[in-house]
């Protein structure tokens, strides 16, 4: 196809890009939902993603609950952790500058990572694929589990977008993003909505962690290394823009994958180069409707 580049390499990296993009999309979507309503830059998102993966590993290795059980249980446990965290940490400081929320969630990240590292060590823990095998497409081998991750995360992103953009519950959420006081004056329990929204966003991170467990090593730092990219995705897509976060997540995953094919040296940098360009040329984000930053 291209000089010196095989179709196997190209398609393989495209698949990896799509898989990474799936995680970018799901995580940045949760981050965007939380930021939109609470104006909190949830630095703990990576730790909550890691918690999801760890809970899946613990469920399997201590209670014998398999992946499919973990796919339901782990996000609920992480969401419950989110509710406690919102009540104890975020609610008392919600009237302060956004920077305090970022610092508080960063502190929570360090605490969670530290505790997990102390208990389970730094090295990755293996989690076997619940759907072994795959299909040979002729030009590449497609593992079933990876296909499942791409399709499932796409369905989750689409479902969440639909919930927010096309349902009554979503209209409450969008209205509260703009003016929470007025929405509350309509008789809607906005404080509870904030708690549940945070729990939902955090639950999405936990769900992503379960999806990631069979692909990546389950380790205390698996979230923090991803978070830098996730923040870049949210900045490029537009803080608070749900569809922006989803599209940018997939797009950047694919761009990153393709860069590995055409110019591997830049693969780790390309997202941040795009972020700087986006900040200079369109600071409000590629998909934000707002004019200016």
């Amino acid at each position: 196809m291209f000089d010196g580049i095989s179709i196997q390499l190209l398609m393989g990296q495209l698949l990896i890009g799509l898989i990474n993009g799936s995680f970018y999309a799901m995580l940045s979507m949760g981050l965007a939902i939380i930021f939109g309503l609470m104006h909190v830059v949830n630095f703990a998102h990576g730790a909550q993603y890691m918690l999801g993966a760890f809970i899946a590993w613990l469920l399997l290795n201590t209670l014998g609950i398999n992946y499919w059980g973990a796919l339901f249980i782990a996000p609920v446990v992480v969401a419950a952790f989110g509710i406690v965290m919102e009540r104890l940490v975020l609610k008392p400081i919600h009237h302060l500058d956004h920077l305090y929320g970022l610092l508080a969630t960063y502190a929570v990240t360090l605490i969670i990572e530290g505790l997990i590292r102390q208990q389970y060590g730094s090295s990755g823990l293996p989690y076997s694929s619940p759907i072994p095998g795959g299909v040979n497409l002729g030009f590449m081998f497609l593992p079933w589990y990876r296909l499942w991750v791409v399709l499932f995360s796409f369905a989750m992103c689409l479902g969440t977008w639909y919930l927010i953009e096309h349902t009554r519950l979503g209209s409450y959420l969008r209205a509260a993003n703009e003016n929470p006081e007025i929405v509350e004056s309509f008789g809607i329990n906005v404080p509870r909505m904030i708690t549940l929204t945070y729990a939902f966003g955090v639950g999405l991170a936990g769900l992503s962690g379960v999806l990631a467990a069979p692909i990546y090593q389950v380790s205390p730092s698996m979230g923090s290394s991803l978070m830098i990219v996730i923040f870049a995705v949210v900045v490029i897509g537009g803080m608070g823009s749900i569809m922006g976060a989803i599209l940018t997540g997939y797009l950047l995953g694919v761009v990153e994958g393709l860069t590995k094919v055409f110019y591997p040296e830049a693969a780790n940098l390309v997202i941040f180069v795009i972020m700087i360009l986006a900040l200079i040329l369109r600071p409000q984000g590629l998909f934000s409707k707002k004019e200016g930053a």
Partner: peptide, 30 residues
């Protein structure tokens, strides 16, 4: 505030607070 509203008081603010991300119908039905 939401408890006060549920006791039968409705408030229309000075700035009108029409939600930009919602249609007229959605604003009305909110």
């Amino acid at each position: 505030t939401y408890e006060i509203a549920r006791r039968g008081i409705a408030y229309c603010p000075e700035e009108r607070a029409i939600f930009a991300s919602l249609s007229v119908r959605e604003n009305l039905g909110l």
